[in-house]
Simulated scan of single mutants.
Amino acid sequence: MVQAIRPTGVENLLGEEELIVSKTDLKGRITYANDIFLRMAKYSWKELMGAPHSMIRHPEMPRCVFKLLWDTLQTKQEIFAYVVNLAKDGSHYWVFAHVTPTFDERGNIIGYHSNRRKPDSAPVERIKPIYKALCEEEARHPNAKDGMRASFDTMVGLLKQQNVGYDEFVLSL
C-alpha cells in the first residue's frame, strides 16, 4: 500500500529559464518527463513512467481546477493554470502550467502535453486564498465527488461575478 506524502511546507523554486515538460496518455498516466520534472518532483524516471500525473497533486490544490482542466482538454482546447505540486519528499513547488491535447493525423486526441515554468510570485499570492477557499468548500462535503462539484460551482460563480472566463481570470492574476 502506498503511503500518503505529508507536505513539509518546504518550497522549491524553479529556475527562471527552466521548463518542466511531461506527456501523458489519455488516462493521465505519465509517458514522458524531462530531467527538470524528475528533479523538482524528486521521483526517478522508473517511478514516474506509467504513474498517474495526479501523484504529484498537493492537498492544497483544489480538485475542481483539475476538473476544469480535463473538461477543457476534452474539448480540444489548451488551458493555463497555476498549480502547486507535491514532491516525493513532501516539499512543494508552484508552476504556471500550459496543458494541451496531442492529436493524431485525423485530429483525435491521443494524449496530453504540459509545459510548466516558474510563475511570478504576485499571481501565486493572489491565487492562494482562492485555492484555500475552494479546498475548504471541497472539505465541507461528505465525499470527494460532491466536494469537487461544490467547489467547481464556487469557482464558476467567482468567474461569473468577475464577468470573465477562466483563461482571462488566470492571465489577469
Rank of each mutant, 00 (worst) to 15 (best):
G157L: 02
V95I: 13
H53A: 07
F37E: 04
I5P: 05
E125S: 11
F103T: 03
R149D: 12
E168L: 11
S151L: 05
E11Y: 11
F152P: 00
N12F: 07
E138H: 06
I20H: 02
D104P: 09
A122N: 10
D25F: 04
S22K: 09
L69V: 12
P123H: 05
V95K: 01
F152M: 10
R57H: 04
E168Q: 13
R140Q: 14
G90S: 07
S121W: 12
R140D: 09
K132R: 11
N12L: 10
V99E: 03
I127H: 02
I79M: 10
M49G: 00
F103E: 04
Y131M: 08
K42A: 15
M40D: 01
T31A: 00
R57G: 01
M40R: 04
W45F: 08
K118F: 06
V21K: 07
L68P: 03
E168N: 12
E136T: 02
N143D: 15
T72I: 08
K128F: 10
Y112F: 15
R117Y: 03
S22Y: 09
S91D: 03
P129H: 09
T100L: 11
Q161G: 02
S91T: 14
P142F: 10
Q77W: 02
E137K: 15
T154L: 15
E17D: 10
E136D: 15
Y166R: 04
P7W: 00
W94G: 08
N34M: 03
S44W: 05
D71G: 01
L26W: 00
Y32M: 06
M148A: 14
K23P: 00
D104N: 15
R106E: 11
R117A: 10
W45M: 12
T154Y: 10
L69G: 06
L38D: 07
K128E: 11
Q77N: 13
Y82I: 09
T75A: 11
A81P: 03
Y43F: 12
K76S: 12
T75C: 07
K160Y: 10
L73C: 09
F96W: 02
V21E: 13
W70V: 08
V164N: 01
I130D: 06
G147K: 05
V170G: 08
T100D: 01
R116N: 05
G111Q: 06
M40I: 14
F103P: 07
F80E: 15
I127G: 02
A87C: 12
R140W: 00
Y131L: 06
M1R: 07
L48K: 00
G157C: 05
D146C: 00
E17M: 08
S114V: 14
H58D: 05
I79D: 09
N12E: 11
R29H: 12
E47C: 05
G157I: 06
D25T: 13
V95Q: 11
R149K: 13
K132S: 13
W94F: 06
D25A: 11
Q74R: 15
F37C: 13
P59S: 08
L14W: 05
D153R: 14
V2T: 13
V21M: 12
L13Q: 14
V10L: 13
N34Q: 07
V170H: 10
T154M: 14
M61A: 10
A139I: 00
